[in-house]
Simulated scan of single mutants.
Amino acid sequence: MALFGGIEAGGTKFVCAVGTGPDDVRAVTRFPTTTPAETIGRVIEFFRSQPEPMTAIGIGAFGPTDPDPASPTYGTITSTPKPGWQNTPLRKLVADALGVPVAFDTDVNAAALGEYTWGAARGIDTFIYLTVGTGIGGGAMVEGRMLHGLVHPEMGHIRVPHDWAVDPFPGFCPYHGDCLEGLAAGPALERRWGTRAETLPPDHPAWPLEAEYLAQALVSYILILSPKRIVIGGGVMHQPALFPLVRTRVKELLAGYVQSPAILEGIDTYIVPPALGDRAGVLGAIALAQGQR
């Protein structure tokens, strides 16, 4: 049986795995994202240590990136705010070291592909995968194809209404200040409230405010892409109170305009967590690799 490698290259940590799918993961490792040389060195060491050869490897990477296979800088992490990682040719370094085909996409597109292949978006040809954690990013599949374009979707950097009287926090995005990521990613919660998101109780005022920003963004995505499902992962979404608040506010903001039973009657199964949980990214990278056969 052909084996595949997957790399979830996150801004905080890397996850590498070998296998064929959710029920067949032969080996996995996790380590912090430090310098490119150290981090990529650990990636290469892990795959070289495996007892069986791999047919291909997939990478889902934090960005911004160059995901265009026709580009001379395909697979490069480009203008990222992550110190030291600007213009890192991640795909090329891995491919040259390991000598196997290497597929590349954004981390959120990879996670979307994982959920499409094995998870909460299985059988759905048009959907969105959003992650809300250290940053906010979105991947989209439209009519069975991952969405790319000029570069790749940057759903975390859209503008959302910011009521300064209600929320005087200026945002933390180094590029845009109070974009969605600047207001609603994990670091925004920590800086606004003075403690990490996972320590905030379910009845804390942080959660209605967080739900407001996320719902405002989801309504824009719904009206633009008309997804048949929205899957939301990431560490911030582990707060159980958040999904019900987001679903309720999305319906309120749409105000009956989108006349679909999926929203009017089935919102609980329209906005959902990833079925693959925190493994969506690395399993999606394996799915990327399988497309290289």
Results as ranks from 00 to 15, higher is better:
236 V>I: 14
111 A>Q: 04
252 E>L: 09
196 R>K: 13
216 Q>F: 04
226 S>R: 13
204 H>C: 12
111 A>V: 04
85 W>H: 02
220 S>Q: 15
80 T>W: 04
208 P>T: 02
2 A>F: 08
3 L>F: 08
160 V>T: 10
20 T>P: 00
115 E>V: 01
193 W>T: 06
75 G>Q: 04
119 G>T: 11
242 L>W: 01
224 I>H: 02
40 I>Q: 00
132 V>Q: 10
209 L>N: 07
155 M>C: 12
203 D>T: 15
116 Y>R: 15
10 G>M: 13
171 G>A: 11
287 A>W: 05
277 G>Y: 01
10 G>A: 14
30 R>S: 12
120 A>M: 07
49 S>A: 15
60 G>V: 12
202 P>F: 05
189 L>A: 12
139 G>I: 13
214 L>Y: 01
206 A>Y: 10
89 P>D: 03
148 H>G: 05
177 G>E: 06
268 D>I: 03
119 G>W: 04
177 G>D: 03
48 R>T: 09
35 T>G: 10
274 P>D: 05
168 P>W: 05
217 A>P: 06
229 R>H: 02
211 A>N: 09
235 G>E: 10
204 H>A: 14
17 A>P: 09
124 I>L: 06
119 G>H: 07
30 R>N: 06
175 Y>K: 11
218 L>Y: 08
256 G>R: 00
37 A>Q: 09
165 A>D: 14
201 P>L: 04
40 I>N: 01
210 E>T: 15
